[in-house]
């Protein structure tokens, strides 16, 4: 278990700030950057790194969702339905993480970060807004006012079983590897289930708090959650994502996405190299 020193706290706080601001700019949680930094960079056991990262995921979800309530952007009904799947997946992931060797977890993370990089590159230019206020959204669909276009966006949910399967998988990966899992759900909800990008992202961010909690509790029970270090990372990520959201509008996101995809491929290679040793 890493000893808590003032310099370690400072390093983790800075790492959290950077991960949080990148996360806010790219629409990801910062976990995909934080876990490899803690595991490969600082040499923490993978499960300790994942546990710290999961607490930052919970904090980000609660903060972001609190600021979005009242706008109907979060689809609460769909979110609570899919949470049945994400929390179940997360519970299983938290349990299996205790049984899997660190080298295997590192290889899985390698696969996953490469996947995030590919998804990020493939979505550099995509925007998806459906403007048809006359359709009936049904029980699970939604309707919200979009600030950019000034119109009302209405949507229905298609292919619910696909959304449930993706949510279960995202929940499983989330607590196994210490990340939010939004990068799995958001593209699926958007591309296959008819949910507009902004609603898909808001609903996913809403769900990952409950998802990560189901996993984090198990890490906590195993004594893998170091309170002082989790506190540091949480505060750093909170500051970073606040800054990213506040000052991020002017940032050249397209360029940043390409750069970060390259970083993710490097992380993937490093995780693989470590996992193979």
């Amino acid at each position: 278990m890493p000893a808590v020193t003032a310099s370690l706290v400072l390093i983790i706080f800075l790492a959290g700030t950077i991960a949080g601001s990148l996360g806010a700019l790219l629409g990801l949680g910062g976990g995909v950057f934080l876990v490899p930094f803690l595991n490969l960079g600082l040499g923490f056991p993978f499960t300790v790194a994942a546990a710290i990262s999961l607490t930052t995921v919970i904090a980000t979800s609660s903060t972001v969702s609190a600021s979005r309530t009242g706008k109907h952007l979060i689809n609460m009904k769909l979110g609570m339905l899919l949470e049945v799947a994400t929390a179940g997946g997360s519970l299983l992931g938290g349990l299996t993480a205790q049984l899997i060797a660190q080298a295997t977890l590192q290889k899985l993370f390698g696969v996953l970060s490469a996947l995030v990089g590919i998804i990020m590159l493939s979505r550099v230019r995509r925007r998806n807004v459906i403007l048809d206020p006359n359709i009936d959204p049904g029980v699970l669909g939604g309707r919200y006012h979009e600030d950019e276009s000034g119109g009302v966006v209405t949507y229905r949910v298609k292919r619910l079983p696909v959304a449930i399967a993706a949510s279960f998988f995202a929940g499983n990966v989330s607590s196994l590897l210490g990340i939010g899992g939004g990068f799995i759900k958001v593209p699926v909800l958007n591309a296959w289930c008819g949910i507009p990008m902004r609603a898909a992202a808001a609903t996913s961010a809403f769900m990952i708090g409950v998802t990560a909690t189901a996993g984090a509790i198990i890490y906590y029970g195993h004594g893998q959650l170091v309170p002082a270090l989790a506190a540091t990372a949480v505060l750093g990520v909170q500051l970073g994502s606040w800054g990213g959201m506040r000052f991020g509008a002017a940032a050249p996101v397209k360029w940043l996405k390409v750069l970060m995809a390259v970083v993710l491929f490097i992380i993937s290679a490093m995780m693989f190299a470590r996992g193979m040793r």
């Binding site: 049945v84 519970l91 938290g94």
Partner: peptide, 27 residues
């Protein structure tokens, strides 16, 4: 319908608390 769904989520969260307690650590 949604009462049932949210209750299932609560049971899943409770299951993870039970799993954590079974490892004999404070919670």
């Amino acid at each position: 319908r949604f009462t049932t769904l949210t209750l299932i989520v609560l049971v899943e969260l409770l299951a993870s608390v039970v799993a954590a307690l079974m490892f004999g650590r404070k919670l």
